[in-house]
Amino acid sequence: MSERAIGFQYATVAQQREASTLGMWAFLATEVLFFGALIAAYLNYRIWLGDEFIAAASLTKVALGTANTAVLLTSSACMAMAVMTFEAGSKRAPVLWLTATALLGLAFVVIKASEWWLDYQEHLIPALNFDLARHGGVAEIFFVFYFCATGLHALHLLIGISIVAWLATAIGRGRIVPGGSTTRLVGLYWHFVDVVWIFLFPLIYLAGRNG
């Protein structure tokens, strides 16, 4: 991630920047297939198990999920501002925007964790305390997917928060200056994690609430 020097395998800075950008896109393509496989499996059960599966979805906390969607979208807006102000040459503004991004990311994780706590109290956590008699086996399968999907998403978000915090520090200390691609790449990753949530939110929360 260092931008101190140009790699010996590159002829120009522009070439190095393009290579890093393409590398990030290729990585995100991999991630799309990773989450895509899980979502495809989820849809398989949703179609196969029908109403019972959808009914289980109504046990999720839609208010918290909606609040988190707003939080995450706002964080992406902050990230976009960080990239724009950084490339415009400012040093203070991107640090502030990045700090806001990371804090909103943390807020998402806190809300998510409180949601999981509520799930725990309602005995909705498979393999830990799932109440089969009360909720039924189909609901258990739904919640396996729910925890796999939101858990993997939260893991990606935590990694994102760490990188954003690192980036804010590096920009603040002048170690990363405009001209390189690091800030833009971190932005890409952050937006991707956001987009994953945009798919998960309707699939998980809105499924059982159309009537």
Binding site: A29, A37, A41
Partner: peptide, 16 residues
């Protein structure tokens, strides 16, 4: 890059 992540998810689900 496009097929391996699907195996990764499949194996994760199997492990779970």
């Amino acid at each position: 890059i496009l097929a391996t992540p699907v195996l990764a998810m499949t194996l994760l689900m199997l492990l779970a």
